[in-house]
Design a protein around this nucleic acid. Sequence first.
DNA 1: ATTGGTGCAAATCCTTTGCAATAGC
DNA 2: GCTATTGCAAAGGATTTGCACCAAT
Lengths: 143, 143
Amino acid sequence: MLADSPTTDDLVALLRQRGQRVTSQRLVILRELRRAARHLTAAEVCAAVRDDLPGTSPPTIYATLDLLVELGLARRLDVGLGVTLYDPRVDPHAHAVCRRCGAVEDVEARVDSTAVMRAAHADGFQVEHSDVLLTGICRRCTN
Amino acid sequence: MLADSPTTDDLVALLRQRGQRVTSQRLVILRELRRAARHLTAAEVCAAVRDDLPGTSPPTIYATLDLLVELGLARRLDVGLGVTLYDPRVDPHAHAVCRRCGAVEDVEARVDSTAVMRAAHADGFQVEHSDVLLTGICRRCTN
DNA sequence: ATTGGTGCAAATCCTTTGCAATAGC
DNA sequence: GCTATTGCAAAGGATTTGCACCAAT
């Protein structure tokens, strides 16, 4: 059994609140995602988790990542060409994806998407998230 | 230039310019994409094209859609959960994706992404495209 | 006549499903 | 003890690959 760490407290609270079970897989998956401090694929999360919990399986990884996204503790990031990443940051920020090497960087700038959100709302669309994705060539691939 | 024309003149011009061949598959795929006037999956493009060119195969569809995107005649749209759509509109506009039914709507509003693009550029990132994706619940799924 | 494009079949990759076993409550 | 959660194996679906044939230049 895992000792509670500050980073998993909110997960424990949310699970209890929803009557769902606190499992070591759930705690470790969130911890590894946050420890990486970057965007990970499901396979990378799986590899990282297996260092602590050998035998952890893809279905558990996918189900748990879905759960974390639903709980608001992570964000799913579809960066194109079928690549899906999971982001431990849940505050609004943009992403820049390199067309050549596939690297994904956070972009530290705020986007004013109020006009777009208002337009969507006028069409009867209830906006939950707004994502900005830049595509182009990253610094390392420029040369 | 690329002003909307009833024909596929701009595709023919671009192909000639690059020394690539003008094939009926390429013409029909672009025509069907534009005729739909909405976002299509590769499979939907394939079905539409086969009405005119029976036997058209997935590899041709994918290669040609890639080509159209590279030529700037279409845009690829990754709307999450592994769904990839192709958009005949190449002017900047946002998209709203319904989390429940998966419907994708155009949002007719401009986004001011200059701050984000400037921040990315300051990091040495050469921005080519900027996409805004809203996720939430569409009008029909609200009730 | 050349060779870029196409069609077919099969392979690959990522993700999900069914079900028995396990572990949290 | 009850049942949600997990692990395993296998299925599923989308996209890509290898290769022979065809058709645009």
